[in-house]
Design a protein around this nucleic acid. Structure first.
Lengths: 152, 152
DNA sequence: TTGATAATGAAAATCATTTTCAATATAGCC
DNA sequence: GGCTATATTGAAAATGATTTTCATTATCAA
């Protein structure tokens, strides 16, 4: 462990902002840690509620929001009307990846292969865009849409 | 003009599916044609209503949906809770482009430069993904997130 | 012109997300 | 370990986008 070394890696991040370590927050981060899914707030709530029925949906939304602000979680919109959340790249988290989205069954798959080509392309393009539009580029997302194995 | 040559390019596309050409549909397509904005359904409704107050919001949603199904319009989700619509690449429409999204003011900018590098990268990556995941890739989206000129 | 039926608009219903607010829990301090 | 200021919580209500329902209207092939 790093930082103040008092608890899991993310606790230092929270405390650094004056935020408190609470049971709901621990639970929600745990849940995100234990899945590879692209969970909606409702998904997280259902799982959280199984483990601790006193947790409210409001808290789930608030926590996911806070974690997103802190950069611990990334929020995605795949076009089905609900936001999805994933732990961001970090010592214990998932690595950089993008998505394959099935237009028919709406399944979302991660892929993290071929990132070398991507890096090259992104670096080149981001640099040019940044210069041309005076835009401070901090992140990017690449999604491929089509039909998955079962739907094609 | 092409096809049955009776009216604007898109009318053939509609009629091909048995759909009827109606005043609201003409108006909504016109509105999308006349803007470079990334309009939400409400935006389209407001403009449509100015031009023809008898049009209802429901019809706007239904029409945008239908046009999306037909591939005449593309629907985007930039994460601010409302979907946005754009005419797709076509003889009279905009050309292939991607987006720069400001994390602070939520402004969305199009860019269509540097597509040669993109094409190369996308073709290579889509090919590999398609093979590896047995996924029939039909489209892709690339977005860069950061701070725009005014917000940085 | 007409008739079958696709399309429309208003209102109600749904669904995700946010706000409000009184009750509760945390962390720094003694 | 107890105490207190205040961050956090959960329930319920509010909001905002989108969808559904249904009776009325408009399109277009015959």
């Amino acid at each position: 462990m790093r930082g103040r070394g008092r608890g899991p890696w993310w606790q230092d991040r929270l405390q650094g902002t004056g935020a408190r370590i609470t049971a709901p927050r621990e639970l929600i981060i745990d849940i995100l840690h234990q899945t590879d899914d692209h969970m909606s707030a409702a998904d997280v709530y259902i799982r959280a509620h199984e483990l601790n029925p006193s947790i409210g949906l409001t808290t789930v939304y608030r926590t996911l929001d806070m974690l997103t602000q802190l950069g611990i979680v990334q929020k995605f919109d795949f076009g089905d009307g609900k936001a999805r959340y994933e732990l961001v790249n970090n010592p214990n988290g998932k690595k950089h990846h993008h998505h394959l989205i099935c237009l028919r069954c709406k399944t979302i798959m991660d892929y993290s292969e071929f990132l070398d080509e991507e890096l090259e392309f992104v670096k080149k393009t981001a640099g040019k865009l940044s210069k041309k539009y005076n835009f401070d580029i901090q992140d990017h997302a690449i999604s491929f849409y089509g039909l998955c194995e079962r739907c094609r």
